[in-house]
Design a protein around this nucleic acid. Structure first.
Length: 841
DNA sequence: GGCACACGAATTTTT
DNA sequence: TTCGTGTGCC
């Protein structure tokens, strides 16, 4: 992952003189940073403001523990919340320590990966089969859906979501189903708790764990077996936690177990950046750390090295409206920098096109695409930006959103592997039992499901074998029997399967059997998957599908193959295999459990569930698109914060929920503080929601920023937006700025400007900011004649969403009124308004 | 069993 | 706008 972090290159302004005994890098730290780094024993709380060098403190602390504190690398564990953060920390620690052997012994991982590793190692103790799989979101939903189906309850998407949230919430709190029941104080809660119990049993039957279990199960092991907890605590003598404000109670309790022996818990975080409350995070952990842990060393990092003064001011303006904050003042000695540029599009498409064009112009002047990021509140917003960036020929990468492993074809192939490895995995089995089509349709699967209550038929694959092996004249002494007439009926239905369905079931079973065989006999995964694809004729199936998609899907299968090869070459893989091997006794009796390819498969599947690398992460040199949540922990030279409107950002589900509002505000704070040198805030006067236009209002956060810090792009379509209107009740401190805002309001309204895309003055204004837009933008009055810039469009290549690419023949009018006559090879000559066109060159 | 069609509902945010 | 579900027909 190439998301840079220039924090590693920053030089604090007041580094102090080196003493001979301290390692060189200690001198690159400012005094509070150094205090946190050299603190060796006992609890440590680092309150690290945005951009204050928190990763730096963590990595240097690890290096210091090893180099100066003489701590064994394997007794250090550092936990983060995202794979990206873990990867970055790993890289920086590697560099600092400069000894790969030592460095690789330090455990640096996400909470969930750590949990997964523990479960792999202690699967039998946790009551899990060696072949257990990790259910991702989709699997989880599918399971819940079949359960609701079974129970004859509402299985709508909303209902599934509700149940999922309930189960997750319990697990985040560290509750098993019994505790959930104990804490259920009304009928609804009891019903939910009962569902949780049922869900958990289904997971158990399937030999699967969900994301929540990756924390909860190790925690339950700790509670159940204090000796196990003590063992962990002895093994990991020094524990470091990043983004501590985002820990949920289950994670917190797990940390307590791990540090019980020594209390060497160093946590780093920022309560202003707590944005995962909805995921069960509880910021009282960081706010109450001082009380909970006896007299911890507390360090505040308040100097921001990242952003310009104006950007930091804007961030402070926004966050100042929140209460209950850990008191701190973030400051910087960086220059004030350029004003924050605000643009309002007439609609969401114009907003996106503005952003794409601005970036395009910057790139043309030699800027690096990696320096640009577009942040939006919801993933759905990304699509328009993609579209526009593509129009402008700007390379981009999307972080988050649909992950590679979420793609249908990838999930299918992995489902075959899962179903072969772990026959109890009904979600995987159901997914592929009829894919590609083999005549096992809904009715057949219904029959199989109906027999699942019978003793001896625990999984769909058991049912499949009954159907496959049944014969009319067979002595059925060894066949399961139904205990009730209904069960017997289901069994009979299953056994009387004939024709295509029966043959389909048989061939399905055979395919899985052959995969298992391959797992036993091959050393590596690649041939296993290659043969799987042949046997299932999966690629043919793809080719027969939607021809528009076929190529992409085939390419993705190819990507999967390379991902597997890469995984097998990865130097860290052997360590993972070792973990899985340790859990299985030599005499396990199941040769599949210890077969090399099967070990590899488990490790690969674990990783594919946990490391959700984004679809096109690999490409370097691209503009980054992501949600604000995804942006946490990153920084970019230039940030476009888009969709800054009420309803979109803040995206409030419940307008009266103060906690939710506070979290949204923190989210805005996180977004702003990602920018190093330039910040663009954009919005649109109307936006398409579910295909229909909806009018918008500018985001409250935009109004909270001191207007003096803002520069409104003159091309904004903002005739009627009254930024000056105080629409939101403000608490205490905000009064002076809202006074200023009201006075300043007149300057925020201006005439509708042209949409002149070739406006050089705008482009030039970026590097050397000119405070007054009017100088650089001489004249936007209704001028019937095209400007010189517009005239020069004749002969240019343009593209239109409907008509495709064409050449400009002539132009009349200017600005928004400009009409261009264009020759489109595809549809002939057309006259089109300038604003519907993209200039390609 | 499989397909084509029509209708309705829906979007936070992620490990 | 897009997705998933339900219906009716071969």
């Amino acid at each position: 992952m190439q998301l840079h972090n220039p924090n590693g290159t920053l030089l604090p302004t007041h580094s102090q003189t080196a003493t001979m005994t301290t390692p060189d890098w200690l001198n690159r730290l400012n005094p509070p940073q150094r205090r946190a780094v050299v603190h060796q024993h006992g609890p440590l709380l680092v309150l690290a403001g945005a951009g204050s060098g928190k990763t730096r403190v963590l990595t240097h602390r690890i290096a210091h523990l090893i180099d100066v504190g003489d701590v064994a690398p394997e007794s250090i564990v550092a936990v983060t919340f995202t794979n990206r953060a873990a990867g970055e920390m790993r890289q920086r620690v590697d560099t600092l320590i400069g000894d790969d052997e030592k460095s690789s012994q330090i455990v640096i991982s996400t909470f969930h990966s750590l949990g997964a590793r523990l479960l792999r190692r202690y699967a039998p103790q946790a009551g899990l089969p060696w072949s257990f799989c990790i259910y991702d979101d989709t699997d989880q939903r599918r399971l819940i859906k079949t359960l609701l189906d079974e129970m004859g309850r509402d299985r709508s998407r909303a209902a599934i979501g509700q149940h999922r949230r309930y189960v997750d919430a319990c697990k985040n709190r560290g509750w098993d189903p019994d505790q959930a029941m104990e804490n259920a104080f009304d009928a609804t809660a009891e019903e939910n708790a009962a569902f949780y119990d049922r869900y958990q049993q289904a997971l158990y039957r399937a030999g699967a764990v969900d994301f929540g279990d990756l924390i909860l199960e190790p925690l339950l092991l700790c509670r159940r077996a204090p000796r196990f907890a003590r063992r962990l605590s002895r093994r990991w003598q020094y524990v470091l936690v990043d983004e501590f404000q985002d820990t949920n109670p289950a994670q917190y309790e797990l940390l307590e177990h791990i540090t019980a022996d020594h209390n060497n818990l160093a946590v780093v975080g920022d309560d202003d950046q707590a944005i995962y409350r909805w995921r069960g995070a509880d910021s009282t952990h960081i706010l109450g750390f001082e009380e909970e842990f006896d007299a911890p060393c507390v360090v505040k990092l308040e100097q921001n090295y990242r952003s310009t003064g104006l950007i930091l001011d804007a961030a402070n303006d926004v966050i100042a409206h929140n209460d209950h904050r850990h008191p701190k003042t973030l400051w910087t000695d960086r220059p004030r920098g350029e004003p924050i540029c605000v643009f309002t599009g007439s609609d969401d498409r114009e907003e996106a096109s503005y952003v794409a064009e601005s970036i395009f112009n910057e790139l043309r002047k030699g800027a690096e695409p990696d320096d640009f990021a577009i942040f939006y509140r919801t993933n759905a917003q990304g699509r328009l930006f993609e579209e526009q960036l593509r129009q402008w020929g700007v390379d981009y990468r999307i972080v988050g959103g649909l992950s590679f492993y979420d793609r249908e074809e990838i999930k299918d192939v992995l489902a075959y592997l899962r179903a072969a490895l772990n026959p109890g995995d009904d979600v995987a089995t159901a997914r592929i039992i009829n894919k590609p089509r083999r005549g096992v349709g809904k009715t057949t699967v219904e029959k199989m499901r109906a027999s699942l209550s019978i003793d001896g038929i625990d999984h769909l694959q058991d049912a499949a074998s009954i159907a496959d092996e049944a014969s009319p004249d067979q002595d059925d002494l060894f066949m399961p029997r139904g205990q009730t007439p209904a069960q017997q009926e289901a069994l009979d239905a299953l056994r009387s399967l004939r024709g295509v369905s029966r043959r389909g079931v048989a061939s399905f079973r055979q395919i899985l059997e052959e995969i298992r065989d391959d797992l036993l006999h091959f050393e590596t995964l690649t041939p296993v998957v290659e043969r799987l694809l042949e046997r299932t004729a999966y690629t043919d199936h793809l080719q027969k599908g939607d021809p528009d998609e076929a190529d992409d899907r085939l390419r993705n299968i190819g990507e999967l193959m390379s991902a597997i090869e890469e995984f097998e070459r990865d130097p860290t893989t052997p360590r993972l295999l070792e973990t899985a091997r340790e859990a299985i006794p030599e005499d396990a009796g199941d040769s599949l459990a210890t077969a090399e390819a099967s070990l590899r498969l488990r490790a690969f599947l674990d990783r594919s569930a946990l490391v959700r690398q984004s679809v096109d992460d690999a490409t370097g040199g691209a503009v980054t698109l992501m949600t604000v949540h995804g942006a946490k922990g990153l920084e970019f030279d230039t940030v476009f914060l888009v969709g800054m409107e009420e309803e979109t950002f803040p995206h409030l589900r419940d307008r009266d929920d103060a906690e939710e509002a506070a979290e949204e505000r923190r989210l805005a704070y996180v977004a702003i503080t990602r920018a190093k040198n330039r910040l663009f805030i954009t919005n649109a006067r109307r936006r398409r929601v579910y295909g229909k236009f909806r009018n918008t209002e500018p985001s409250r956060y935009l109004l909270d920023i001191d207007p003096d810090h803002l520069h409104i792009d003159p091309r904004s379509s903002s005739t009627k937006i009254d930024y000056g209107r105080p629409r939101h009740r403000r608490s205490h401190s905000g009064s002076s700025s809202s006074f200023r805002r009201r006075n300043a309001s007149s300057s925020w309204n201006f005439d509708q400007s042209t949409g002149d895309d070739d406006d050089e003055s705008f482009n030039q204004s970026l590097p050397d900011w000119e405070p007054s837009a009017d100088q650089s933008h001489p004249d936007f009055d209704k001028n019937p004649d095209p400007t010189v810039a517009e005239q020069s469009l004749v002969g240019a290549t343009v593209s239109h969403t409907k008509f495709g690419v064409g050449e400009v023949l002539s132009i009349s009018g200017c600005g928004d009124e400009a009409r261009l006559s264009i020759d489109f090879p595809a549809v002939g000559q057309k006259t089109v308004y300038r604003k519907f066109l993209k200039i390609l060159g």
